[in-house]
Design a protein around this nucleic acid. Structure first.
Length: 381
DNA sequence: GGATTAATAT
DNA sequence: CATATTAATC
């Protein structure tokens, strides 16, 4: 009883390694943005393999993949997990609860304190607003649904067209722009439609046109929320295009297949994304090591680099200790269920994928050509 | 693509 | 009320 079969252990190890490798393939594309991440994963893989091949007796850590509690302070802060943190903010959130339990449930959470700290920085830099389908932004995923990996979107109270509660008053100025148009109707009915027939019904676009008739007050567009879902797609697109540095908003938009999404919106988001992927803390306490990014993005969430990097080695030698701390984590990058746009509701299909003004021929090779370069350089942004 | 501006959130 | 974030515009 005390110990499970070695065979079983082995199996687990293998599975883990496989999972890791898969993740590695996924982030390969982002090696520029998250070199550290890549390296860490690689190291983890190696360590695991080593462990497997070598005598695997001392492997305590494999034990339930949910143990190692106390903190893994040492190394491998590796992709803990991601799961969009929610910020119960008003605008577009309706998620409810248990994200926390979500994460912690599967694998232990080190310590309350630690956890707190983490979430702290985690939430400090999120890119999206937590809601899935924004009230007025119908993303059209086809029914295939893609609620797969990322913590299952709660399709539950999906949307409420009018949800401006607290902000309502302030944003009233935009009141002139009742974004609550048709959305109410269609959405309300298919609230669960998060995966149901989402795209179909809602043709409502975000037209908050500046001035319709009277009032030449060019009010700004209603802020659109980048839900995790949206961001996810954004990332996917980015990935397919070969990275945030080569992707162009136009292309991204097309790949995302979200109608109502404009170029500028994507552009803006991209800008922010790049900003965040760079060096968030350019000021104080600069690391001696410019190579080590301050933050990296994992599955859309920015995570801080391990303390080790701050002072110690660049090429982690001590990596040997790397271990599969956090047992199984759910991959954020889901297979991307072949999005398809059911309804082409945007007149602005001028430059679809037929005319790439830019002759960018990115070879998207996320999965296939992952071999040679593993932990390599960090371009130093 | 980057800098500003405006609206919000904290 | 000041500051930080973030999306919209310039």
């Amino acid at each position: 009883m005390i110990e499970m079969d070695f065979a079983q252990k082995m199996r687990r190890c293998h599975e883990y390694v496989e999972a890791l490798e898969e993740e590695r393939r996924k982030i390969q594309v982002f090696q520029r943005e998250l070199p550290l991440c890549l390296e860490l994963v690689t190291q983890a893989i190696e360590a695991c393999k080593k462990e497997i091949s070598g005598g695997s007796t001392t492997t305590d850590y494999m034990q339930g993949q949910s143990d190692c509690s106390e903190q893994t302070t040492s190394d491998v802060p590796v992709l803990e997990e991601f799961i969009p943190i929610k910020k119960g903010s008003a605008d577009c959130s309706e998620e409810d609860d248990e994200q926390e339990s979500h994460k912690s449930k599967e694998k232990n959470v080190p310590a309350a304190v630690d956890h707190k700290r983490k979430s702290d920085w985690l939430r400090s830099v999120q890119l999206w607003n937590n809601n899935d389908q924004s009230p007025d932004l119908p993303l059209n995923e086809d029914e295939g649904n893609n609620a797969s990996a990322v913590g299952v979107k709660k399709s539950g109270g999906a949307f409420q067209p009018f949800k401006r509660e607290k902000t309502a008053e302030k944003s009233v100025q935009s009141s002139a722009v009742p974004k609550t148009n048709a959305s109410a109707t269609s959405t309300s009915t298919t609230e669960s439609g998060s995966r149901g027939g989402t795209g179909a019904g809602e043709a409502n676009n975000v037209n908050y046109s500046k001035n319709d008739e009277k009032e030449g007050q060019p009010s700004r567009k209603q802020r659109r929320c980048w839900s995790p879902e949206l961001h996810r797609r954004f990332l996917h697109a980015l990935q397919q295009l070969g990275g945030s540095h080569v992707a162009t908003p136009k292309q991204i938009r097309e790949l995302m297949k979200v109608d109502g999404l404009t170029n500028d919106e994507v552009k803006s988001h991209l800008q922010k994304y790049r900003l965040h992927t760079r060096r968030p803390s350019p000021s104080v306490q600069q690391n001696a090591n410019p190579q080590a990014p301050q933050f990296v993005v994992v599955g859309g969430i920015w995570v801080p680099p391990p303390p080790e990097y701050a002072t110690t080695t660049t090429t982690s030698t001590k990596t040997a200790t790397v271990m599969p701390t956090s047992g199984i984590y759910t991959p954020v990058a889901t297979p991307l269920p072949t999005l398809s746009q059911p309804s082409a509701t945007q007149p602005s299909h001028s430059e679809e994928r037929g005319s790439h003004s830019e002759g960018r021929v990115h070879s998207n090779s996320p999965s296939t050509s992952s071999s040679t370069h593993t932990t390599t350089d960090s371009p130093a942004f």
